[in-house]
Amino acid sequence: MGGLFRAPKPVIVAPPPAPAPVAVAPTPVQAQQAAEVESQARSRRGLEGTIATSDRGVLAPLPAVARKSLLGE
């Protein structure tokens, strides 16, 4: 029964890593230019980019397939 009530071995914790270098914040001019580039890219995609869900997209006509008209056919 001595094995059931033994204290757990202490866990050795490694010291935390050195702090990462602080990233330099972009200037307001750089932030504005980045926002303009992102806006232009978003406008280029447009409606067609949001509608196309497959290689043919939603706007392409469906292939002609014979459909069932009654249950059990």
Rank of each mutant, 00 (worst) to 15 (best):
A25V: 05
L4Y: 10
S39P: 03
P16K: 04
V11W: 06
T53F: 13
I12R: 12
A18G: 09
K68N: 15
A34E: 04
A7H: 08
E73H: 02
A20S: 13
S43E: 15
R6I: 01
L62M: 15
L47C: 04
V11T: 00
S39F: 12
R56S: 14
V65Y: 05
A14D: 05
A35E: 04
R67M: 12
G2F: 06
A31D: 09
G49W: 00
V24E: 15
P28E: 09
R45C: 10
V58C: 11
T27L: 07
R67S: 13
M1S: 06
D55W: 14
F5Q: 05
A20G: 13
I51F: 07
P16Y: 10
E36G: 05
T50I: 14
R56I: 10
P61G: 14
P15G: 04
I51Y: 10
E73I: 00
P17T: 06
V58F: 12
P15M: 02
V22L: 11
G57R: 04
R6M: 06
A7E: 07
T50G: 12
Q40L: 13
S69Q: 14
A23L: 05
A18C: 06
Q32A: 11
L47N: 12
R42T: 04
R56M: 11
G72R: 12
Q40M: 10
L59N: 15
P16L: 06
I12M: 10
G49E: 03
L47D: 10
A64F: 05
A20E: 13
V22Y: 07
P16T: 00
A34D: 09
A52K: 15
T53Y: 14
T27G: 00
Q33H: 10
M1G: 02
V13T: 03
A52V: 14
A14W: 00
Q30S: 09
K9Y: 07
Q40S: 10
Q32V: 01
P61L: 10
P63T: 05
A7M: 05
P17S: 03
S69M: 13
L4F: 01
T50V: 13
A23K: 09
S39G: 13
V22G: 04
R45S: 11
F5A: 08
A64L: 08
P28T: 08
R6F: 02
R42F: 03
P61E: 15
A18L: 07
A66Q: 15
R45I: 15
V13L: 08
P15W: 03
P19L: 00
G3W: 04
I12L: 08
G57E: 07
G57V: 04
A23T: 01
R42C: 00
Q30C: 04
A7N: 10
P63S: 05
R45F: 09
P15I: 02
V58M: 13
